[in-house]
Design a protein around this nucleic acid. Structure first.
Lengths: 228, 228
DNA sequence: ACAATTGCGTACCGTACGGTACGGTTCGGC
DNA sequence: GCCGAACCGTACCGTACGGTACGCAATTGT
């Protein structure tokens, strides 16, 4: 396989060319509406109009394919940086609300749910089914580092900005973020992973986000900020 | 709630005799340290010293076996009723702290984690892999109803008692419970499901529970109760 | 125009698993 | 002492999947 020039329009994520991304897209589609068992090498090859041999050449292994799917999807998530100065009380509240909605949106996404199910299904004990070969990091680790970490960074920087602006008060930003996360998500994520219809929960998202932010500000807000 | 060991004489849960419970115990052991793929009919039969034919006679199906495993394990969880009268401020705080610790304990249990992984792994979209035959409710539903529901009931009755005693203030008990759950668990459950070592998290349980209860009381406590 | 690379389609192999069938054995009732 | 039921151990069958090999078309470089 040769490395094609990177100037090709878009994508080219992580050294994968356009064709391979298309394959991953097909594989993700299969995963979303068929579960892990639907992601067979033959099935992916058929769905993507490529040969199994190419799959193995590109991804080395079924596990390699699965890992690539996670990395590929994670690469799609864009975090929006927040400008730390000019942070008013109402601005912070709005930013927090927006974050809450984004978080719920991401977590309830079909692809996200499918990938989480995949990674969890591969997990056993505190490691994961380890292939004979080296087989890089666990799928769970991969998902956590590429997914949750990114979102967490965005949140903590926002919280730090709030503290610098004298609007929030806390010792440990990570702990505060943990609280915020818990208030927003509660057990909705797990229930969706278990099959609860996301559509039914999505209707509550707005209210849920609002209440979570209100509670969070009650706990960590300074002065007027803490008023419900 | 506590995990009781009913190995003595009785049990006979849900129409299953002692022998079959022993088989389920073996199957759970296999699941815990081998993941779903380790629970093969032949493997269970070998581990339990029974024949495959008996497995099929008793549980009808591999899915039936998996369902029985969930039901069986869920039957072990006993919820401790709380006496609603004579509820002092400090008593409520203690009860909440105890609940928080119990919740974290249950969720971090190896068997619980393995079963959650199993149910999640079987889930696809908003349903689950549906067997040819009727095949009762989804494993995810089963797990949610027999596990989470029970714990939730205990919590909500405790919260109701607190409200009746004039110590707490909220409109919707379920919503308040959701907040409590989120404050306690945050994303610890998901991370453990993804393979994060529970032992590493268990050290924080005490502190985490305490902080969660304090935050909860700040949000929902009445008067002196709300003081950290 | 020719050679080489790439990749598709398909056929193939070994294995592992779900599910069934069968012979032998234990155990309780009569 | 005999009978039937329950059950164990094992062998067996069909299938599906991961992974590899091969033949042939298309594309690319020279």
């Amino acid at each position: 396989m040769q490395i094609v020039d990177e100037s090709g329009a878009k994508a080219e994520r992580a050294g994968l060319n356009e064709r391979q991304n298309a394959v991953l897209e097909s594989a993700l589609k299969l995963l979303v509406d068929g579960g892990e068992k639907a992601v067979t090498t033959a099935g992916v090859a058929r769905a993507a109009n490529c040969s199994k041999e190419s799959l193995y050449k590109w991804f080395g292994d079924r596990d390699g394919l699965l890992s690539a799917m996670i990395s590929y999807q994670a690469g799609k998530v864009r975090t929006v940086e927040v400008r730390s100065e000019t942070l008013t009380a109402d601005g912070l509240r709005k930013h927090l609300a927006a974050f809450a909605l984004d978080l719920l949106d991401v977590l309830s996404g079909e692809v996200s749910l499918a990938l989480n199910r995949l990674a969890i299904g591969q997990t056993v004990g505190r490691t994961a089914v380890r292939d004979a070969r080296g087989a890089g990091p666990t799928l769970g680790r991969l998902l956590e580092e590429r997914g949750r970490r990114q979102i967490g960074r965005r949140a903590t920087t926002l919280l730090e900005a709030g503290r610098k602006a004298g609007l929030l008060s806390f010792d440990d930003a990570d702990e505060a973020y943990g609280t915020l996360y818990g208030l927003i998500v509660t057990d909705a994520h797990l229930r969706m992973l278990l099959g609860f219809d996301p559509a039914a929960l999505k209707k509550e998202f707005a209210g849920r986000a609002e209440r979570a932010v209100a509670s969070f500000l009650t706990l960590y807000g300074v002065g007027a900020m803490a008023a419900a």
